[in-house]
Amino acid sequence: MRLHREGYTIMLTTGLVLLALNLLAYFYLFSDNSIAISLLAAASLVLFGLIVQFFRVPNRQLTLSDRQVIAPADGTVVVIEETDESEYFKARRRQISIFMSPLNVHVNRNPVSGIVRYFKYYPGKYLVAWHPKSSTENERTTVVIETANGVEVLFRQIAGAVARRIRWYVKENQPVEQGQEMGFIKFGSRVDVFIPLDAEVKVNIGDRMKGGVTVLAELP
């Protein structure tokens, strides 16, 4: 396991602030109260541990297949439905949505290999990630990858009420590999994936996903 580069500044800043706070408490605020000092130290360790675990990147054996769409993120499947995709396809597609809690790994990965045919970033609101309008009103990105077989898969990084920073590492006309890191969303969020209607969905609502590993669907 390693720690993601997106967390270096946050982890260093948090560590220094907590260290300064504990030193201040030890020498000045609670110098005669060992219980208060111990409680503050314990709370600081827990907080720092939570932040560090958020930026963890576990070692995984990635699933690689030209005919499969792989989960782009860890989390829980909260939506599987046929819907109108109005931004790019302007047609009916199958939507699979994965909600990422603050305890999930937050690396985002390419669900398929191919060429990035479309990319757009939208600033926006910070509605809770499960809100019906979060897909169209929150801060988000839209990415479309065309596979070698000519099938286009669209997916969106969507910020939530806590997540306020989306990172991406792709651009239009860039070749990408399935399972490769394409971005990161900080502190809780959601990813929507749009696949053809004739693709065979392999997951159910409530299933827990492993980014880069779990098969979402079989392409036609």
Results as ranks from 00 to 15, higher is better:
residue 182 M to G: 02
residue 117 R to E: 13
residue 187 F to A: 04
residue 139 E to I: 01
residue 210 K to Y: 06
residue 69 V to S: 10
residue 165 R to E: 14
residue 149 N to Y: 15
residue 7 G to T: 07
residue 166 I to E: 02
residue 93 R to Q: 14
residue 93 R to G: 11
residue 32 D to V: 03
residue 166 I to W: 07
residue 184 F to C: 08
residue 144 V to K: 09
residue 83 T to V: 15
residue 85 E to S: 13
residue 132 P to T: 06
residue 57 V to E: 14
residue 133 K to F: 14
residue 128 V to E: 14
residue 72 P to N: 05
residue 14 T to P: 03
residue 71 A to D: 04
residue 129 A to Q: 08
residue 147 T to D: 13
residue 108 N to R: 00
residue 171 K to M: 11
residue 176 V to T: 13
residue 190 R to I: 10
residue 80 I to F: 09
residue 26 Y to F: 15
residue 10 I to S: 12
residue 112 V to E: 09
residue 1 M to Q: 05
residue 77 V to C: 00
residue 138 N to G: 07
residue 22 N to R: 02
residue 38 S to H: 11
residue 39 L to N: 07
residue 133 K to H: 14
residue 208 R to P: 02
residue 145 I to L: 09
residue 141 T to Y: 01
residue 125 K to W: 08
residue 66 D to I: 04
residue 63 T to E: 04
residue 180 Q to I: 00
residue 23 L to P: 04
residue 142 T to P: 05
residue 19 L to A: 12
residue 206 G to Y: 10
residue 59 N to V: 01
residue 109 R to H: 11
residue 62 L to R: 09
residue 45 L to D: 01
residue 19 L to K: 05
residue 79 V to R: 05
residue 92 R to I: 09
residue 49 G to M: 07
residue 203 V to G: 07
residue 166 I to C: 00
residue 186 K to H: 06
residue 89 F to K: 03
residue 119 F to M: 00
residue 126 Y to V: 00
residue 194 F to Q: 01
residue 1 M to D: 06
residue 155 F to V: 00
residue 49 G to S: 12
residue 2 R to Q: 13
residue 31 S to Q: 13
residue 112 V to Y: 04
residue 201 V to F: 10
residue 43 A to G: 05
residue 88 Y to S: 10
residue 163 A to V: 07
residue 39 L to C: 09
residue 147 T to Q: 12
residue 213 V to M: 09
residue 97 S to F: 02
residue 121 Y to I: 01
residue 12 L to C: 04
residue 99 F to C: 05
residue 131 H to Y: 13
residue 43 A to L: 14
